[in-house]
Amino acid sequence: MSGNGNAAATAEENSPKMRVIRVGTRKSQLARIQTDSVVATLKASYPGLQFEIIAMSTTGDKILDTALSKIGEKSLFTKELEHALEKNEVDLVVHSLKDLPTVLPPGFTIGAICKRENPHDAVVFHPKFVGKTLETLPEKSVVGTSSLRRAAQLQRKFPHLEFRSIRGNLNTRLRKLDEQQEFSAIILATAGLQRMGWHNRVGQILHPEECMYAVGQGALGVEVRAKDQDILDLVGVLHDPETLLRCIAERAFLRHLEGGCSVPVAVHTAMKDGQLYLTGGVWSLDGSDSIQETMQATIHVPAQHEDGPEDDPQLVGITARNIPRGPQLAAQNLGISLANLLLSKGAKNILDVARQLNDAH
């Protein structure tokens, strides 16, 4: 009898209710805020589980004197976190989706994509230029951005401005803007500013005609071990179906173009009346040469937790077992079709030249 009692006690200790789920994140304040929001949602869904947040620095956090596009290494903000995932030191990792490459290392998958916040870019102005827009900034004003995508589009749109690289986390960039006289304004992701509670610093939100956004911008991705079915089931509740389908289309477009950090590629997606609209573009580094096109596809946005595919093969690095396969494939095909259209119009040449120029500098 006593033996059975011990077995029952052991089973209770090993039951999922007692389990601590370890969540990996970057150390920056924004990353911690984003991770806290994901953990809060998981806690609400699984009140019996405990969650421990483990923060670590990544290569991208450490190399702050070089433009991201020049470092010449993929997975700048993800490699150390993936290493911890691989060694079973954490069970899942919360990322900004735009930091996750469209091809993940073997053994990993994006197990959830959370509801997207505003994906557009924002302009934050130096205190002396508050009330201005990019259009009304004085001639030769210097605007800071760490992104080739932003610089290429904005140089084309605002030729009277000069664009220079600015690195560091959000706090560091804002301090550089406010305390030094080098920059009249800087460009940042609206979602990051909003998550930090800095709505009052948003001086201008850039519309798609001015600057399309990065693939996955404004959404959070939760990376897990691809074979860890328990954790895949656990994080599945975080999937937002519309965000998922938009981001599958965007990531398929980028992957098929073979774009990345070192080339200016941008997108804009919208879901309306059962249609998914995808606009994508590529630019030369100075913005003088560009190709942009829009395509659409009829896609039914499923309700969360309709029964999805059981075999769960990944699409552009994403596993969404609780979302039907048909809409996911339709979104992926839309991204591939748009990429093929741009490639047929000469996108590869623009991107190759951009890559060579970026590598040469």
Rank of each mutant, 00 (worst) to 15 (best):
V38S: 06
A40F: 07
T41A: 11
T41E: 11
T41M: 14
K43P: 03
Y46L: 07
G48W: 10
G48S: 11
F51R: 01
S57I: 03
S57F: 14
T59K: 06
D65I: 08
L68M: 14
S69W: 09
G72H: 09
G72Q: 04
L76N: 11
T78P: 02
L81W: 09
L85F: 04
E86T: 10
N88R: 11
V90E: 05
D91Y: 05
S96T: 01
K98Q: 03
L100Q: 08
P101S: 11
P101T: 11
P106Q: 11
P106E: 14
G107F: 13
T109I: 06
T109W: 06
I110L: 09
I113E: 00
E117M: 06
N118E: 14
N118P: 11
N118H: 11
H120R: 13
D121I: 02
D121H: 02
A122S: 09
V123A: 12
V124H: 01
F125S: 04
F125P: 12
V130Q: 11
E135V: 14
E135I: 11
T136K: 13
T136S: 14
G144N: 02
G144V: 06
R150G: 04
R150P: 03
Q153R: 03
Q155G: 11
R156C: 09
K157Y: 12
P159T: 09
P159I: 08
L161A: 05
E162H: 06
E162A: 07
S165A: 07
I166N: 08
N169T: 08
T172I: 08
T172L: 10
K176E: 08
K176S: 10
D178G: 13
E179W: 10
E179I: 15
E179A: 14
A185G: 15
I186C: 09
I186L: 08
I187A: 08
L188A: 11
A189S: 08
A189R: 01
A191Y: 04
G192W: 01
G197D: 03
N200G: 09
R201V: 10
R201A: 03
R201N: 07
G203M: 02
Q204S: 15
I205V: 12
E209D: 09
E210V: 11
G216C: 13
A219R: 03
A219V: 13
V222T: 02
E223P: 04
E223V: 05
R225F: 05
K227S: 09
Q229G: 14
L232T: 12
L234S: 03
V237D: 00
E242Q: 10
L244T: 14
I248N: 07
A249K: 04
A249Y: 00
E250A: 00
A252G: 05
F253S: 02
L254C: 00
H256Q: 05
C261N: 02
P264M: 00
V267P: 03
M271G: 13
L278S: 07
G281E: 15
G281Y: 00
W283G: 13
D289K: 04
S290E: 15
I291S: 07
Q292F: 09
E293V: 07
A297D: 07
I299Y: 12
I299M: 15
H300E: 11
H300T: 15
V301S: 07
H305W: 09
D307I: 01
D312Y: 12
G317K: 00
I318F: 15
A320M: 04
N322L: 06
N322H: 09
P324T: 14
Q328H: 12
Q332L: 11
Q332K: 15
N333S: 00
I336V: 05
L338D: 00
N340V: 04
L341C: 07
L341I: 00
L343C: 07
A347Y: 15
A347Q: 14
N349W: 15
V353L: 06
A354M: 14
A360C: 00
A360M: 02
A360T: 10
